[in-house]
């Protein structure tokens, strides 16, 4: 075959046109352009926030679709073509340096987002995300409006839930420190409250807990557990001051189960996120031990009521004479 200019040109153009027809025109004509059940129109604020999302390249670190395999791993709803109706440009994304945001709406309350956007490391100590403080208050508000709309109608329900509990949490906080803790603890299911931490607060457990605390909690609850982390000024109610909890014990006990439940479940309406996806139960018990032993100054770990002794922890009867599990294995020197 002799390659003449005409052949090269006509050949390229024909192949190109055929491809455009097959992979652009045909999908355009045949895809059902119908909204999904969760789809809704974006509000003016949300659209303005979307522009900021575009302008600041959030899309290079965050995808906006849940895949089948993400669903296998616990995400709630696989994204559908109808979720994206009318949106231009698409922001599906190709890299997940940060988490998927398709269902971000209502995941956190607004105050969490403010602290996070000012500096992601305030709420997420190991985050890689850039600071967006330079956007200024108004733009941050718009951006959050957009984030809270991600997930459409499903998100609206979650956002509403956040707002309802926010009102109650703020009221409780304004009623005073002890009232607030009472409110918090009253909302922990009855069965959890009398539950002690099953695993003793030994030195290894505390060290593992310290690591979890540093990687996940320190930006809010602060290095000394007084709730004065760098995120605190942005949060209402502010992070709990653990050091006061000692006076809220009931009958001088009950704390492990409450800590576990609150950490696992989070406190909807407040900036306190749930950690059930990020921390396995052993880690939650360890960080509970760390908070209890270091900040509250009291831990009920490995006390009655308890079940069969764990195979690898010290026995309940082996509690050191000092009364502190962290002295276990160090010899009972006077």
């Amino acid at each position: 075959m002799r390659m003449t200019p005409a052949l090269v040109l006509v050949g390229s153009v024909v192949i190109f046109t055929a491809s455009v027809f097959a992979v652009i025109v045909v999908p355009w004509q045949t895809m059902a352009h119908q909204p999904s059940a969760a789809w809704r129109e974006l509000s003016a604020d949300e659209l303005a926030g979307r522009k900021l999302y575009i302008a600041n390249g959030c899309t290079y670190c965050h995808s906006q679709f849940v895949r089948t395999q993400d669903w296998d791993l616990g995400m709630e709803r696989i994204s559908q073509p109808g979720d994206y109706l009318g949106l231009s440009p698409h922001l599906l994304g190709t890299t997940r340096t940060g988490p998927d945001l398709a269902q971000q709406g209502g995941e956190h309350p607004d105050d969490w987002h403010v602290a996070h956007l000012v500096s992601p490391r305030f709420t997420r100590p190991q985050s890689l995300m850039p600071r967006f403080e330079f956007l200024g208050q108004e733009n941050i508000r718009l951006l959050i409006a957009y984030l809270q709309g991600m997930g459409g109608r499903d998100a609206d329900q979650r956002v509403q839930r956040q707002q309802e509990w926010k009102a109650r949490a703020v009221a409780a906080y304004n009623a005073g420190a002890d009232e607030n803790v009472k409110w918090l603890h009253d909302n922990v299911p009855e069965g959890w409250r009398p539950l002690p931490t099953p695993y003793p607060a030994t030195e290894p457990s505390l060290q593992r807990g310290a690591k979890v605390y540093q990687d996940f909690c320190i930006g809010c609850h602060g290095p000394v557990g007084d709730g004065q982390g760098p995120a605190a000024p942005y949060l209402n109610p502010p992070p709990l001051n653990f050091t006061t909890l000692r006076r809220n014990l009931v009958d001088g006990k009950y704390i492990g189960g409450i800590l576990y439940y609150q950490i696992m479940n989070g406190i909807t309406g407040t900036a306190m996120p749930y950690f059930k996806h990020e921390l396995e139960s052993a880690k939650i018990w360890d960080v509970s031990n760390f908070i209890a032993a270091n900040f509250i100054g009291f831990d009920d770990s490995n006390t009655e009521p308890a079940g069969i002794d764990a195979s690898y922890e010290p026995l309940r009867t082996q509690k050191p004479a000092s009364g502190r599990w962290r002295d276990h294995g160090k010899g009972d020197a006077p």
């Binding site: 999908p27 994206y84 109706l85 949106l87 231009s88 698409h90 599906l92």
Partner: peptide, 8 residues
């Protein structure tokens, strides 16, 4: 851009 998934 065009709109929706078609844009992708």
């Amino acid at each position: 851009a065009v709109t929706g998934v078609l844009d992708a």
